[in-house]
């Protein structure tokens, strides 16, 4: 067995929440591990590290993926968005506001992953139906809420974003 102490480190450069980021890390690490352990981005959580709970979801080039199953080595040059990058101009993203107001976060542990997943949904489909919301977050287990307040928060954010767009044009 090769002791891990003898391993070399690897480096990548990627865009983390819009910022060019260089990181060196042990090459066996996943995106989840470098975010939390090497880059201090602990907003991304983990509940199994096997792709079975959804708590570690981040956006990779705009698409929700499970950071526990993405090799950090494969992230060079990619765009990664985590909950830390969700807010806009120092304020909260409409999804964050709606989740906070409508009880969509209880313990808050599955919340960051659901927020980024919901953001990807609204980016791609600004007016999802309840069933489409249900489907989009079906890879994120929540043990606290029973999901209903989460659905409503996504719907409230959807209306707010649509309203902002209308008033902007």
């Amino acid at each position: 067995m090769l002791p891990i102490e003898s391993q070399k480190t690897s480096q990548i450069r990627f865009m983390l929440n819009g910022e060019e980021t260089d990181v060196s890390f042990a090459p066996y690490k996943t995106l989840l591990e470098i975010l939390r352990e090497d880059l201090g981005h602990t907003g991304t959580k983990h509940g199994c590290e096997l792709g079975e709970c959804g708590a570690c979801a981040v956006l990779l080039d705009g698409k929700p993926v499970l950071s526990c199953l993405v090799l950090a080595l494969e992230c060079g040059g990619k765009q990664v968005l985590t909950v830390e990058g969700l807010g806009e101009d120092g304020g909260l993203h409409p999804l964050q506001d709606a989740f906070a107001d409508l009880g969509a976060a209880q313990c808050g542990y599955c919340t960051p992953a659901i927020l980024v997943t919901a953001k990807a949904l609204l980016d791609q489909n600004p007016h999802p139906t309840r069933d489409q919301i249900r489907e989009a977050i079906s890879g994120n287990l929540c043990r606290c809420t029973g999901y209903l307040q989460i659905f409503e928060a996504v719907e409230a954010a959807m209306l707010k974003i649509a309203g902002q767009k209308t008033s902007a044009t």
């Binding site: 199953l69 989009a136 977050i137």
Partner: peptide
């Protein structure tokens, strides 16, 4: 298959 995130990967 599995979940939306997994299908993206």
């Amino acid at each position: 298959v599995a979940t939306p995130q997994i299908r993206n990967m």
